[in-house]
Write a protein that binds this DNA or RNA. Sequence first.
DNA 1: CCCCAGGGACATT
DNA 2: AATGTCCATGGG
Length: 228
Amino acid sequence: MGDRNFQSGILRLVYLSLLKHFGYQNWWPVDWEYHKRKGTNPFDEVVIGAILTQNTSWKNVEKSLKEFKRKGKLSLKFVKEAPYEVLQELVKPAGFYRQKTLYLKEVADFIFSLKGRIPKREELLKVRGIGRETADVILLYAYNQPSFVIDRYTLRWLQRFFGFSADYEGAKRFFENSLRPNVPVYKEFHALIDELAKRYCTKGKPKCEICPLKGSCKEGNLRKERGG
DNA sequence: CCCCAGGGACATT
DNA sequence: AATGTCCATGGG
């Protein structure tokens, strides 16, 4: 994995290939119409969603976001002002609701303490409830900073496609050293990898035979040679 | 019944 | 640094 040109070349090809296969994913999903109507900030929805989706399917997050719209407001101001008991009921469908309610409060306080300033990654990581992935999600999708997001899907794909296992920071460096700091590309690439992992590079038995990257994937070719 | 989901905190080794 | 455990709802 030492050849930088090889890395950037293959990653670029992977990106274009996934984009062609799946089309634009347009992450992070935000209800623009709602925010226009209510005078709230789409930024808040990204931050709230980033906490709610921790180890949770997006379907369950959507249920919670709907509750926010129905019984309160989808804003950090509401998160800050609402009683813990009220907030907890709205978070419930997203699971881990006691933790996540606490995390939402902590994150809202932190965001307000910034007074509009864009936080450093290290600052975000000090906040309770913000780990590495959530920090990168907030930087990339809420603040539009070129911070590449890694998750379990990405690590699994790296392991199979290149045959090497990286930790979070190692994988992050790999992408950021291989790609220009391009916010729209970072956003789209992460979403595309997740789509690939959900549909083809699955946790159980991967569907290598019909994978859009089957030609260049190390694991896929090994499976082919083994005949299964 | 099982496993999994757009993680993170905390304890243990 | 690496690993284990807990958190919790909802779908397959």
